[in-house]
Structures are given as C-alpha cells and as structure tokens.
Design a protein around this nucleic acid. Sequence first.
DNA 1: CTGTTAGCGCTTTCAA
DNA 2: TTGAAAGCGCTAACAG
Lengths: 341, 341
Amino acid sequence: MKIIDKAVPTIYEVSRLAGVSLATVSRVINDSERVREKTRQKVLAAMEELGYRPNSMAQALASHRSNSVGVLVSELHGPFFGAMLSTIEKTLRAAGKFAIFTAGHSEEANEKEGMQFLMSRNCDAMILHVEATTDEYLLECKDSMIPFVLVNRLVPGLGDRCIALNNERGSYLATKMILQLGHRQVAYVSGPLNWADARERLAGHKRALAEFGLHLEPSLFREGDYREDSGSRALAELLDQEVQFSAAVCANDEMAAGAMAVAHDRGLAVPEDLSIVGFDNAPLSRYLYPKLSTVDYPIEDMSRMAARWLLRNVYGDETLEIVHQFEPKLLPRESSRPVKD
Amino acid sequence: MKIIDKAVPTIYEVSRLAGVSLATVSRVINDSERVREKTRQKVLAAMEELGYRPNSMAQALASHRSNSVGVLVSELHGPFFGAMLSTIEKTLRAAGKFAIFTAGHSEEANEKEGMQFLMSRNCDAMILHVEATTDEYLLECKDSMIPFVLVNRLVPGLGDRCIALNNERGSYLATKMILQLGHRQVAYVSGPLNWADARERLAGHKRALAEFGLHLEPSLFREGDYREDSGSRALAELLDQEVQFSAAVCANDEMAAGAMAVAHDRGLAVPEDLSIVGFDNAPLSRYLYPKLSTVDYPIEDMSRMAARWLLRNVYGDETLEIVHQFEPKLLPRESSRPVKD
DNA sequence: CTGTTAGCGCTTTCAA
DNA sequence: TTGAAAGCGCTAACAG
C-alpha cells in the first residue's frame, strides 16, 4: 500500500524544467556551493512553479543525516515535561531540525527501549531525560550510540554532556528560608532516594539544617515518590506521631500539594499552623490555596540549552555558548510564614 | 558532516552472512511473505549476530511509507495537550508507528506552516488539532494532502475524519445542574466565539436556560479567551455591575480558576455566595479551593480514537472500531451548591 | 519458497 | 560553475 505518493514533483522534474542538472538543483536546495546567481534563480523559479519540496527521506538516505533529534523523557505529559518538549521543539525547529519524542516512564527497560527506538529512527542525536538508567550504562552508550546530551542529571565522566540543576542549592535555599522564619521543628518529605536529584535535594536540606546547628531528625523524615498521594501519606504519618513540627519542606510541588490537602482535612491552617514549601514551581503551585512557596526550576532554559548543545556539537553551530549548570531561585509565596512564638 | 554512520550493518551484510538474497532478508524483516522457517531462522541469526537494524529512511524511501504520523496541536504543553500527545504516542508506538509533534499556536499561518512541515517530513498521515484554520481550507486539504483526522472539531463534509466532543451537551449539563440547584441569575463566561467549540458550549448553556423558561441575559454574559486572566476580568466586570447573580458557568476550567481567584479577592465565598462551574476537568480543577465542579472532557479516549482512525484508514487495520462523537460527563464537586434562599 | 533486478529521490565525488 | 554517474539501504515486481 503506497501512502506517500501524490505525484509529488522530484528533483528530476525541477532539473528538466530549469534546464540544469540534478547536481545543480541539489546545490541550490542546500544553498551550499557556488551556483551562479542566474542559475539559482532559474532553479528557484522551477521549484516554485512545480511546488517542489525535497523528500526528506531521500535526503537523509543520501546524506547520512536525518536532521531529526530524538527526545526521550519520562512522560510526555505533565507541566514539567510539557515545558521541556515545547521548548525543545521550538528551538530545534527554528534551526531546521525536528524532534521525535518518546517516553521512558522512569523504568530501566523502557528507557533502554526508548533509546533503541530513537536509534532505529535514524536520529542524528538524542536529548535524554532518564531516571532509571544507570550511570554505567550511559557511560557505555557514549561510544556505542549517536551523540546525546543529558538533562537534569550529572554523570561523572559525561560532564560535557550534562545540563543539570543545582538541586542541592535549591532545597538548601528552601530550608534556609524556613529556618530563618524561626522554625526549628522542620519535617522533610523526600523524593525517591534511588534517584539522584532526590538525594541532592535532601543533601541541601541537611546542609541548611547544619548551618543552624540542627540535624535531620529521622522521625521528621519521610520518603515519597514525587507524586501527590505520597505527599499526603507522608504528612498524615508525620501528624499521627507525637512529634511536633511547624513546617514541612517537600522535595517537589506535587507532594507539597498532597501535604497541603491533608493539612486542610485535619483542620490545620496553612501557613498559620504549618508552613509548607515545595520545589519546581509547577503551575499547580500557583493554584493551591494558599499559593505555594517553592523553588523555581528553570526547565525551559535548561531544555533550550540541551537543544543548543546538539546544535553546536552535532550540527556544528559554533556560535552557541553552552552552560552546564543552572541555579534555582527561591520563590516565597503564601504558604510559609514566621513560626508562631 | 556524516552523522549517522557507525559502520552499521546493512541488509547486504546480513544476506551474505546468511547465504541468502537481499529479497529474502527483506521478507523476514517485514515478516510478510512466505519464507521457509529454516531460512527465516538463518536470517534471524545473522541479523542477531551483526546487530542489524533496518534503516528506516531507506525503508521509507523504497516503500513509500514512513510509518510516521504527524501531530499538529495548538501547544505542546499544558494538561490538555499533554494528555493528547501522551496517548497518541503510546497508541501509535504500540502499532509500530511513530509520531512527530509540532505546534500551531492557534494561529492560521502557524497552523498551515505546521501542516506543510509535517508533509515535508514525509508523514504518512496527520492528526490535527487546529483552531484557526478555516473549514474551507480543511476541505481543500482533503484532496491535496495526505490523509488526516481532526480532533475536537466537526467540519461539515469531513464527518468521517472528525473525532469530536458533544460540547453542546457538556455545557447543557453544567448549566442544568446549576439551575436544578435553584439558581436563576446565572452568569456565563464564554470562550472566544470565533472558535466552534465555544459557540457550541454557549448553545448548550442557552438550551438549559430555555428549558427553565429563561434566556441569556446580555448583562450576565462575557466573552473570554479561555485563559485564566480573561476569567478574572470577566467576573470582575460582572461583579462591578448592579446586576445580581448567584452562579457563574465558565466555558473552561482556566477561566473558572481566574473567576474563583477574583471571588476570593472580593471576599465572596465560593460556593456559599457564588457557585462556579468549569469545563474540561483539567488537573488544576482538583487543586483549586474549593475543588471545581466541572464537565469531564475525555481527551484521552478521543486522542486514542484519532490514532486508531489512522491505524484503520491509513494502515489498514480493519479490526478497529471508530467512534466519532464522544459524550461529556458532569463532575459535581465542591464549587457549586444550592442557592441561598 | 527464493533470487534478480530495477529503482525510490537525493547527495556527492570527480571531471569538465 | 556545472554535469555525469555512482551509490545511500531497502522494497517490490517478476521470474524461476
């Protein structure tokens, strides 16, 4: 079953109409080599008249480059990835490249398969946001695969290919703010500690505590999975204990939202009775009531940078500057306030 | 600059190693035609040994089909489109096809360019979520372009290619609920009326009013643009008038969120003083306080159906049943309640 | 059931 | 500055 065919004009039609050779037409298509201006005009006119459009498959086959880059993210939906895809597509397309997206669902097997899939689509390169794949595997891939850049991850030995956020500093800032507001019993709801960013965020929390002469109280610590429900569960458990606390620092906004819902349910006023801070500055953080204090994750800037990395390192645009580490910003809003005396 | 090359084995290597012809290898790749089981095994073994992967560009070029479908949506981010992309990608990939996404930003020129872009990528077909493109243009495209299916739109003359929601019924249900709760002064915040779905939703609102012997009061009507701010502006204007009303029906959740924020600011309690209803069941509707009563938009089901339409009509999977119109469901939550007597 | 043989539409040396 | 010709890796008749 032929599908593409529509009696589309080919380079051959153009060359005939323009009275030049295939090679010449090809040259003006890739507006590369020297072609006499007059010839170029003739060809352009012919292309116009025929409504000619180069066949990208044929170009790819002959030139060994597809102008496509594969993007593997955990999910295709959600505010975080939405912003990522959107930015990457825009940046790439402005440069005449295009993106193929696929999801790895934070599972090792899926992530590997996703990479294979992108390879099989003959992508020139990849942008990877992977969580389950190990550092070791990524290191191997460096030589066995097409070029790739990692977003939101710092792999030793792959430094130049990483675009990461200073997660540690982000939660350091969050916790420090809470401490500066006078809170001393501070609960922490962590992300899954088998993921590096969750560990980094926890580290920042600890550093801030240490600066105030405190340390992480196991009874005030819970590990969640970055999803809303786990935040609810964590806060409920924390509340069910005897231990007092006046603030809860959550490793992301979803969990903070879950925690806030539980606080409401239990009749605890936020922030009067309990201050809550999130991380990521997801859109939902502005819809929560009260508006969530959080830490901004510059995912758009980082995604754009990942795309630029490729434009520079794969497509040879040397004019692009690359930044590897991005800094988070504290965003105090309404869910945090000084501790009641 | 060659990019793809990695000394990748070709079908030729495989045929040599297996001791068969190119054609035979091709047959087992497309596990189509009759190949003796023993031969197949030999070929498979050779492919395995070489780590062979078919070159999709070459396949596309030779077979006139790329196994790729283009997806043009208004935006790549946001909950609505996120769910769409996610579902489409999953469905397509499970069928061995893949998707190329691009955004039209609800502007006619961008939408047209997006379609051209997808055509130039040699997609076999397209899934279109377009708002600015006219019915007439779409009608023309029917013959001049690759096959496409429309999501969230019903174009006369393109019935079989449309996957749409019964918007009219959705807002009919929303308004009817409000009226059944005893409200009689009901404000309506519409979407942009140059978009069909906004008109349909308004029609449903009017029908419900009519059933209760009411009609649309111009002073209680405002046209927004489906964005949060316009909902805020609309409610503020409404409130600044002399006219009383005890409920506001909004044509989508974003605008409802904006309206709710204004109500809070003005010291109006929701739903005690003012009931508010949205439309779409966007994720944010659950985060609002109080939780927003709304109408569910089954975007995932609809996206999946769009993908199936292609699988059936373009790739020939006759086993798939196609549904063209989907029905919305009312989702009463906490932002609506009986009118105060 | 398997092999031969043309291409698919374009790029890219190499000559002219 | 332009043209001729040899592929890129694979599919698809058509034979056998």
